[in-house]
């Protein structure tokens, strides 16, 4: 008869460092190589990428002035100005417009409406 002392049960090693992320469950195989899109740097990078590209094209225009159909097109940086400020106008107008036009989801479904 062997007098073996039972080994104290050691809790299983936590796999926090090596385990696959929780989101891996149910992820399509084709999407796995692109999970880096969720990382912080990938979310910050577009700001700098688009800024650099926009500035690069502005520099290009400086050396190769455009000849367009309209005299407006010949203003230096016309498309970048309209692209940036036009986009900002459309988005920033959303704040006052939402205050003015927003209603709850059941607005038209209340009694007396919409039928």
């Amino acid at each position: 008869m062997t007098n073996e002392t039972p080994k104290p049960k050691t809790p299983p090693k936590k796999k926090t460092e090596t385990a696959k992320p929780e989101t891996d469950h149910g992820i399509h195989p084709l999407a796995r190589p692109f999970l880096w899109l969720d990382s912080k740097w990938a979310r910050r990078a577009p700001f700098w990428i688009f800024l650099s590209a926009a500035l690069g094209l502005l520099a290009w225009e400086f050396f190769h002035p455009r000849h367009g159909y309209s005299k407006w097109e010949e203003i230096f940086g016309f498309y970048e100005i309209e692209g940036f400020f036009g986009f900002c106008l459309a988005v920033l107008a959303g704040w006052p417009l939402r205050k003015l036009l927003w209603r709850s989801e059941d607005y038209y479904d209340r009694e007396g409406s919409d039928d």
Partner: peptide, 26 residues
């Protein structure tokens, strides 16, 4: 130029939390 400036505007507005959050409603 138009597209890249607009894309930059989007990242700019998101970065500085100027892009209106989506809200359920009509």
């Amino acid at each position: 130029q138009l597209l890249l400036a607009a894309l930059f505007a989007f990242t700019f507005l998101v970065r500085f939390k100027l892009y209106p959050a989506e809200v359920p409603g009509v």
